[in-house]
């Protein structure tokens, strides 16, 4: 589903060049749940952005379902983002001038024809916000906003969902709730999930962990020939095949 080949990303900061990613290679099969870990500044969010086609690498390639996306024209990339990838941001990134329901609906309106209202309502209900649809983001708590963001990420039924520290700005209780919802939706929709986190406990829920340091992969326990058995995570979720 996701193939990364020789991925590099550098930026210029005045006279200096900063290497954020230094040539990554890995694959993520369909349906896998991968956690990307590393300390702050290790390049996790940058990697996620490149996987989503939100940015262009300096070298290397990202393939989604065999299609190389890294150097596609912007409009084509937008189509990929809209149809193939759902993104959950650490800071929710809801549009403040739209209601919760409208935020979820927006993704549908931008990428599909027809009326997506029913689907949006259903997703809002599944994240437990059926009674808060007409509220604006400023009227919702952090956890509630992130649940809206989850609903938005899944509205187009994308084959891939990328989440950048989805619980990073939440307290433990809300974080657990959001994670639970994310994993439930993931299982229900059958998506491939790549989640960035610096929380080792959260990473335990994943099928596979890729650890980055200074822009390089230092460990990847996904190079295993057999899937891990179903297990219960520290949060009480059941994960695995």
């Amino acid at each position: 589903m996701i193939a990364v080949e020789g991925l590099r990303k550098s930026i210029r900061n005045g006279a200096r060049t900063v290497d954020i990613l230094r040539g990554l290679d890995f694959n993520v099969p369909k349906g896998e749940f991968v956690a990307i870990m590393g300390a702050s500044g290790s390049g996790k969010s940058t990697l996620l952005g490149l996987l989503a086609g939100l940015d262009t690498p300096s070298a290397g390639e990202v393939r989604l379902n065999g299609v190389a996306i890294s150097y596609l024209p912007e409009d084509r990339l937008a189509q990929v983002r809209g149809k193939a990838v759902g993104f959950v941001f650490q800071s929710y990134q809801l549009i403040p001038t739209l209601t919760a329901l409208e935020n979820v609906l927006l993704s549908y309106e931008l990428n599909a024809e027809g009326d997506g209202l029913a689907r949006a309502r259903q997703l809002m209900a599944s994240v437990g916000l059926g009674d808060r649809m007409d509220h604006y983001p400023v009227q919702l708590s952090g956890g509630e906003q992130q649940r809206v963001a989850l609903a938005r990420a899944f509205v187009m039924q994308p084959p891939i969902v990328l989440a950048d520290e989805p619980t990073g700005n939440l307290d433990t209780t809300n974080g657990a709730l959001v994670l639970k919802l994310l994993l439930e939706l993931n299982r229900k929709e059958g998506t491939t999930l790549v989640l960035v986190t610096h929380d080792a406990t959260l990473a335990e829920c994943a099928d596979r962990r890729i650890v980055l340091r200074d822009g390089a992969i230092i460990s990847d326990d996904g190079n295993i020939s057999q899937p891990r058995p179903e297990r219960q995570t520290p949060f009480g979720f059941r994960v695995g095949v």
Binding site: A78, R81, G82, F87, L110
Partner: peptide, 16 residues
């Protein structure tokens, strides 16, 4: 700007 960036990340093209 942020709203436009969010819309683009959701799949909106510049033309849209």
């Amino acid at each position: 700007l942020d709203t436009i960036a969010i819309m683009k990340s959701l799949g909106a093209r510049s033309g849209q």
